[in-house]
Design a protein around this nucleic acid. Structure first.
Lengths: 138, 138
DNA sequence: TCTATTAGTTGACATCCTCGACTTCTTTCG
DNA sequence: CGAAAGAAGTCGAGGATGTCAACTAATAGA
């Protein structure tokens, strides 16, 4: 399957987008005194109680990594471990009230940044963009 | 500026995309025995000889960080420091032949992954997607 | 039951990231 | 010109991230 010119320009757009997202997330994290990975974890835990293994999959990192991340966020009072009543091996990280509030601020800030970056694009095109991005996911 | 429903679904699409890109880049890096940041650096240096400070800006990290990253890539034979003849404070990291070849493989792999992910979308829509992503950059 | 598998943790080690302090070189301005 | 101010890169300390192999505890399967 040969890459077409459209694939090339799409790739280049994605690289630019990648840098923009990284920068945006860094700023948001820094304002809250957290790391990018930590705010990502808080967002993933929104309305969601995965096990450590599932959480690792969602974050795209090793499960041995998640242990330490949850430890540090627990120390900050943002996350707790909840036991699974059906399987005593499993414990499910979940947000504390404060962790939920911080996650909410993160999502708000990100939506605001997105709205601002695409403010020159019509709502119709923004919806189209969202559909095109997620196309093969559906 | 209130976020609209379009902004929300765009944000959600971007978060999914972010995870896909992270996973894709991790796989590419791992296959080459490098880290995500290292392949990013190799890509940024393609046809480009920034100073350390400019490189830090492009990578979205601190310049004190770049010193170590360039050191490690130099040890791997992928990057060298070139002196700037106009200003002796400045040295410009640049790709060795091998570094250029590795960067080329990274770009190829990424384009292939992009082409595959959006293979269900018409070339016309892929071009439209690229334009919409980069809209306010132009 | 007895074995194999799964979930989470730990320790070792490399990398990433940030901060403040430092050296060297360049620019500015008195 | 020469001293002060600024800019570029480096270094060291310290925390966070990421990977690997090895480990414990609990469950599932034969």
């Amino acid at each position: 399957m040969e890459p077409t010119p459209e694939d090339m320009s799409l790739t280049s757009a994605l690289m630019t987008l990648q840098r923009w997202m990284h920068g945006t997330r860094s700023v948001i994290a820094r304002e809250l005194g957290l790391t990018v990975q930590q705010i990502e974890l808080l967002c993933v835990l929104h309305n969601h109680k995965p096990s450590f293994g599932e959480l690792a999959g969602l974050l795209g990192c090793d499960k041995t990594n998640v242990t330490g991340m949850v430890d540090r966020l627990t120390r900050l009072g943002l996350v707790t471990r909840e036991a699974d009543p059906r399987d005593r091996r499993i414990s499910r990280p979940s947000l504390t009230d404060e962790g939920g509030a911080v996650g909410e601020r993160v999502r708000e800030a990100f939506v605001r940044a997105v709205a601002e970056r695409w403010s020159g694009v019509s709502p119709r095109d923004r919806a189209r963009l969202a559909r095109l991005i997620d196309t093969d996911r559906v």
